[in-house]
């Protein structure tokens, strides 16, 4: 009976008893979720356009952030380093299209996946060789990102918000809005959607697959750079940021591999779900459950919607 109460009653009493704390938990989950969504967005962009599950998305995030901080350490002004880091991601996108995607066109998906695993190891080695393996401090001050703490009165207590988290949320929302407009309203966006729907049909109307791939990998690189800046500012820029990309997997399972809105909603469900689960139910299982809770939530959804929340339903007739 006590066990049932600790599962079904006590957590809700705790939530009702301290609404400020509940809001704090949901806010922390929202920030994590929006950042997971950004990582997932990088996967979705590439998967939609080239059908490749980009295993290297996590390391692209680290590499982009390292390039930014590394170039700043070499004496570049912060905004100059930011522009240069964007340039690095463009060169990377062109290089990947020329050296990895183009030679492997029409190869089975598993070959492309293996190629992105190879790309991951290459970027790890290149990043360590050029920028070193030691963690670096994100150049928040140079980029004008605030790092203070804001205390907001709420229900007689204080909600503690990090300015970097507020910035991350705003930047993520802007980025998603920009990408939504880019896909829906621009010529390139429409071409990209055409490629995502049918490669051969897109080719037949004169859309250059190579050009679209470069654009998509570059866009994923920009998303990686923004995500790397935000995660790096919350902690530090180091190679262990790569493991955060693993959190994009349950987000993708939940939201579907081909849906931009799915990545956003999936990110928020996972982010908020894992925080609320850890804080109010985690102790019952010894704590530290959020590492696997995200996958459990995603698998729960899979039982009802195998294609994810917003993924395309695949119907294959025999």
């Amino acid at each position: 009976m006590d066990l049932l109460a600790s599962i079904f009653v006590d957590p809700f009493l705790r939530m009702a008893g301290n609404p400020t704390f509940l809001t704090q938990v949901v806010w922390e989950g929202f920030v994590s979720g929006i950042l997971y969504a950004l990582v997932a967005l990088g996967f979705v962009l590439i998967y939609k356009a080239s059908g490749v599950f980009n295993f290297a998305q996590g390391i692209m995030m680290v590499f982009a952030a390292l390039a930014l901080v590394g170039l700043a350490e070499m004496g570049m002004p912060a905004w100059g380093a930011l522009v240069a880091a964007v340039g690095v991601m463009l060169i990377l996108a062109i290089g990947i299209e020329r050296l990895v995607l183009r030679p492997l066109v029409n190869q089975p998906d598993i070959i492309l996946l293996m190629a992105t695993i190879g790309l991951t190891r290459f970027l790890v080695g290149l990043g360590e060789m050029v920028f070193g393996g030691e963690p670096k401090v994100m150049i928040t001050e140079g980029l004008g990102i605030p790092t203070g703490v804001v205390r907001v009165p709420l229900f007689g207590k204080f909600l503690i918000l990090k300015e970097i988290d507020i910035t991350a949320a705003v930047v993520a929302v802007l980025m998603v809005g920009f990408l939504a407009v880019f896909f829906a309203r621009t010529k390139i966006g429409r071409a990209l959607r055409a490629v995502a729907d049918d490669h051969q049909a897109a080719l037949s109307v004169g859309i250059s697959l190579e050009r679209i791939w470069v654009i998509v990998w570059f866009a994923a690189g920009i998303v990686a750079l923004v995500t790397g800046i935000m995660w790096g500012a919350r902690s530090q820029v180091s190679f262990d940021l790569e493991v955060i990309a693993l959190k994009a997997l349950p987000v993708l399972i939940l939201g579907g591999f081909t849906s931009v809105p799915g990545a956003i909603v999936g990110g928020l469900v996972i982010g908020i779900g894992e925080k609320v689960g850890e804080i109010y139910w985690g102790r019952l299982l010894g704590g530290g459950i959020e590492s696997w809770l995200a996958y459990l939530i995603a698998l729960g959804f899979l039982l009802y919607r195998p294609q994810g929340l917003f993924g395309e339903k695949i119907i294959e007739r025999v």
């Binding site: 301290n18 704390f21 704090q24 938990v25 922390e28 920030v31 994590s32 503690i160 995660w231 919350r234 902690s235 530090q236 262990d240 940021l241 493991v243 955060i244 693993l246 959190k247 894992e274 925080k275 850890e278 804080i279 985690g282 102790r283 704590g287 530290g288 959020e290 590492s291």
Partner: peptide, 15 residues
């Protein structure tokens, strides 16, 4: 995998 994101742990500390 949560070394970089310890908000849950510190929310519990706060509580």
């Amino acid at each position: 995998d949560k070394m970089q994101d310890q908000s849950s742990q510190w929310l519990n500390v706060q509580s």
